[in-house]
Design a protein around this nucleic acid. Structure first.
Lengths: 216, 216
DNA sequence: GTCTATACTTGGATAGAC
DNA sequence: GTCTATCCAAGTATAGAC
């Protein structure tokens, strides 16, 4: 159900559910449930119900599979993000959307996959550059969203969108990790709550920012 | 409680450089250089020049050693932090101190140890609560610092120090991970640069905040 | 009481079977 | 062309030597 439905580009027949996709799905699932350290070939294979060695045949190594898994979940998630964020025009709406997205992500575990691999790249520096490539679209996305929200506002000069975008990505990442630490979401929820209280105030102070729903 | 006294409370004589301390130091060093995944008993032992099994004799398990290592580096670091931050009274000074501290930490690798273990706790949930205990002092420290900086300011009502503290810790953590990803500090440096540009402005807008050294 | 040799388990990866 | 049985390295932890 969650499949991109493209033709199998690697060995495999082009019908039904290519093994390759099954492996990627199993890897995502395993990363969510067991983390990076628990995402061994054997565990992934157990999750997906196939033989461990299939991973090496199709991907060459665990790292390559995990990177592919991140790429897959990342692009799937990007679609949802875009859809939700495009709806939001005012700053309050944007904050609302961000909170909703974050909650969804936390529950579905998509951010976790990203956080796991970013954290893991400390131990495996050779993965760094490739993960970096997969993070970049997120920074770009954040920057574009911020640019739209601050368009015409004097704040854009004080807080350049690209720097803000970097900070937002870092903040999301840090929150994800801290949240999983004690399985307590209250800290993050409080932050979003605060942000949604503050957003209208800030919005009122920024005459240049788009305020679609404002009956002027 | 992890450890407190200088006297070896576990087996060991109380003279010179107890094995226990050598092991902790080796663990810290290994976490910095090889990350969590690379911090195996064998690797730590190789770093410290002792037999791997000593770890199990003195600490019982790798996890327990790693937690002890985090506790040690954390309390060492907390001292430096307090010393530097107590100097700062104005907001600009505080930002300056934060940037300096962050740079030191990045170079010495202390934050990395924290980030490694926090990330690792995703894979080993049983470590979560204990790491959480070790993170708490940092949130408290951040909160107290923020409280002092915002004392008497109306901003404190809009941005409660405890929520801000949580966000700051998350941001530091996220920045640390992103920085190590591509070994590029420019993003973070830009942020601190921006913060130090903004701090005086913000400070001027907040009449309640303490502004000790303002001779102009 | 302190430390080492060694057992046992799990993991990544390949050589060869269908 | 697709998948499985199997090998070897690395990991944790204990049973026993100094």
């Amino acid at each position: 159900m969650v499949k991109a439905g493209r033709k199998s580009r690697a060995p495999g027949r082009s019908g039904a559910a290519p093994t390759r996709d099954r492996i990627v799905d199993a890897a995502i699932e395993t990363l969510k449930s067991h983390g990076f350290a628990g995402a061994s070939a054997r565990e992934i294979a157990r999750t997906g119900g196939f033989h461990p060695a299939l991973i090496f045949y199709h991907f060459g190594s665990i790292s390559d599979l995990l990177l592919a898994a991140l790429g897959e979940t990342s692009s799937r998630r990007m679609e949802s993000y875009r859809a939700e964020v495009e709806q939001a025009r005012t700053l309050p709406e944007l904050v609302e959307a961000a909170a909703r997205i974050y909650r969804e992500d936390l529950e579905s575990g998509h951010i976790k996959v990203l956080a796991e691999l970013i954290a893991a790249s400390s131990s495996f520096p050779e993965m760094g550059p490739r993960i970096s490539e997969l993070v970049e679209p997120w920074e770009t996305f954040a920057r574009e969203t911020i640019e739209r929200a601050l368009a015409g506002s004097p704040l854009a000069a004080l807080l350049p969108p690209d720097e803000l975008a970097h900070a937002v990505v870092a903040l999301y990442l840090g929150m994800e990790l801290l949240t999983h630490l004690d399985r307590d979401r209250s800290g993050v929820q409080a932050l979003f709550q605060r942000a949604s209280t503050l957003a209208p105030v800030l919005s009122a102070l920024l005459p240049g920012a788009p305020e679609r729903g404002d009956p002027r």
